[in-house]
Structure formats: structure tokens, C-alpha cells
Computed example of a mutant assay.
Amino acid sequence: MTTHSSFNKDLLVALAGLAILVAIPFFSPGRVALDFVIRLAAFGLFATSLNILVGYGGMVSFGHAMFFGGGAYAFGLLMQKGGASIPVAILGAVLFCAVLGFVIGSICVRLKEIYFSFLTLAFQMLIHSIIITWTSLTGGDQGLMGGIPRVWGSLNLADVQTLYWFSCVLGVVCLFLMRYILQSPFGYTLRMVRDNADRAQFLGINVWRVRLYAFILASCFASVGGVIMALFVSGAYPEFSYWTMSGEAVFMIMMGGLHTFIGPVVGAGLLMIFNDIITRTTEYHGLALGIIVLFFALGLKRGMTDFVVQIYQSLSRKGARP
């Protein structure tokens, strides 16, 4: 369970990480590094929120992008057509995805393994179809046109440096909250349900409720990733909620590692780097990326952080021997 010392340790790590990120523009003023970190904040939250289900809950979702895209569209529409301020629009996007997660999760978490996975995919395709066909509201396959207002008082998120700092703060805060939740009694209960649902139910735990709460939490944090991406591109597009986006989140977890908390963020960074390099060097994007994924799946047989942790533990055991 979460102790006072572990909370302080996680808080110090979060503050140190935030301090490093805030300092980056002073050493690398170009847009390349800033744009990369902004996208990393969005995709890192997206992948880490999915890992609440996959790594901690044992529920592999193939449709998590519906909350990433749903958060982007809800935020954009509240800003464009609702005239809401940035904080109100962010809160509205999170609440929208919380309700969406409750409705969809209430149905999906009753099923197990592959049935759960494909039902989430079915709902995701339904949401994507609604976005495509409801042209008067969403703009159809063209996405939200006209841009999103990104000024709130003295906060001008149209400025890339301001957006960078805003994304860093929002990303670190959300990661810290996820870490805190997963280290709480609820997080350990979720692990128990993952490892042995029958035993957890025998002990009096409502398995359906625990899984549903995890589904809603994952939905909310994924929506924040969508908000950051919507601010970055000043709009929202159907690709945000397409099944390939869900697949990329699974790849991020596979590459980074699902047994360490920071693994999905590392995987998001790796996938972004690989995508940027591959698109510049070859036209066979899918083939090259497939080979890289196979290397992680068949070569390392685990994510990067899981591999590093295993090596470290192995060396520590050898050093402890007399």
C-alpha cells in the first residue's frame, strides 16, 4: 500500500522530472525538441492509461483510442462551439470520457480475455463511425476545421513554448496521479483481480466494480492525452480514434514494458523516434516498423524497461552472492 515515504519519493521524482523538462527550452530552443516532448506528453499519457488495463488489470483493450479521440473532440467542440475556457473544456472532456467509459465499460468488463478485447474494438469502431458520419458536428473525415482557440487570459497556448510548458505540467501531474492510484489499496486490489479473480471474489471483492473503476480511470487519463494532442494540432481528426491508434498504444507498451510504471512512456518515445526515422529513410514504413516490433517481441521478449530491470536484478543477485 502507499506509504508516506513512497509518496514523498514519487513526488520528488515527479518534481525532478518536471524541472528537467522545464529547463529543456533554455538549452534546445529549436522547435524539434519542443514538438517531440509535447507529442510525448500526449502519447505517454495515452499509453500509460492503457497500461492500467493491460499491465495492472489484465484486460487487453483494442479500442482505447476512442477515449483519446473522444477527449480531443470533446475539448475542441467545447472550445469552438461552446465558447468554454481552457480549464472548463479540459474538465468537460474528462467528464465526457468518464461517462463514455462508464457506459462502455459496464458492458465490456463483464467479458473475459479475447471477448473483452474485441468488444472494445467494436465500440471503438462505432465511435469512429459516428465521428465520420456526423459531419455537421465533427467535420467528418476532414476533422474539426477552423482551429481551436488557445488563449485564456494571459495564457497563450498558441505559442509553442507556452504550450510545451503547459503540456509538461499536465503530463507530469497526470502521471503522478496514475502512479499514486496504482500504489494505493485500489491499485493492489486491481492486481489481485488480475492474478486471480476467483480468489478475489471469494474474499468479498466486487470484481466487476474494480474492473469498471479501472476502465473509467483509464478513459479519463487517455482523454487528457487527447486534449494535449488537440492543442498541439489545433483541431481533432478521425485518425485519433481509429483502430490503428489503439494498435500503436499496444506497441508502445510492448516496446517500453508493461511491468514498470514508466515503461509505456519510454515505449511512446521509442515508437515516435522509430516512426520519424523510418518515414524519412524508407517508403516501406509498415515493413520496417513490423521488423522493429518483432525484435522486441521475439528478441528481447519484453519491453525495454522490463529488460533493463531484469538485467539489473540479475546483476544485483550475483553481487549479493558470497
Rank of each mutant, 00 (worst) to 15 (best):
V224L: 13
S241E: 00
G204R: 04
S223Q: 07
A200G: 05
L231C: 10
A297D: 07
P238W: 00
E248Q: 15
T260M: 02
Y188T: 11
Q183G: 13
Y180K: 11
G187F: 02
D276C: 08
P185Y: 01
L298N: 06
Q310P: 07
F202P: 06
M255C: 15
H285Y: 14
I181S: 04
T282K: 07
G303Q: 02
T260V: 06
A222E: 00
Y188L: 15
F186P: 08
Y242P: 08
V250L: 11
L294M: 13
R199P: 09
M245E: 05
F274W: 14
I278H: 07
I205T: 14
A222W: 08
G247W: 01
M255W: 05
A249K: 02
T281R: 05
I291M: 14
R209E: 08
F202T: 11
R191D: 09
G299H: 01
P264L: 10
T279W: 10
N196M: 07
L271E: 07
F232P: 04
I291L: 14
I277N: 09
M254A: 15
R191A: 11
G299V: 05
Q313H: 12
F240I: 11
F274M: 15
V308H: 01
F186N: 08
I216F: 01
M255S: 07
G290D: 08
I292A: 12
L287E: 03
G269D: 06
M252E: 08
V193L: 04
F307W: 14
A288G: 06
I273H: 03
Y188I: 10
W208N: 12
G286E: 10
I216E: 05
L294T: 10
R280Y: 08
A230L: 06
L217V: 09
Q201N: 12
F202R: 08
Q183D: 14
F296I: 02
G303L: 00
G257Y: 00
P185N: 09
Y180I: 12
Q183L: 12
F215G: 05
A236W: 04
G256W: 00
L300G: 10
S184F: 05
I277D: 07
E283I: 14
R280N: 11
D195C: 13
V207F: 02
R280L: 11
P264Y: 05
M272N: 02
V266N: 00
S184M: 06
Q201V: 07
V309P: 10
G247N: 03
L270I: 15
C220Y: 14
M255D: 11
G256E: 05
G247F: 03
L217G: 13
V309K: 12
R209K: 13
S241I: 02
G290R: 00
V233E: 06
G257V: 00
M245N: 09
V250N: 01
V293L: 15
V233F: 12
L271T: 04
Q183M: 13
F251D: 12
T282D: 06
T189Q: 11
D276I: 09
R199F: 14
D195R: 06
T244W: 02
R179V: 10
A200M: 05
L300S: 12
Y237A: 09
L231P: 12
R211S: 04
N206G: 07
M304Y: 05
V227Y: 02
L190H: 07
Q313N: 15
I228Q: 02
G256A: 04
W243E: 00
P185M: 03
T260I: 02
A230D: 06
W243V: 05
L271K: 13
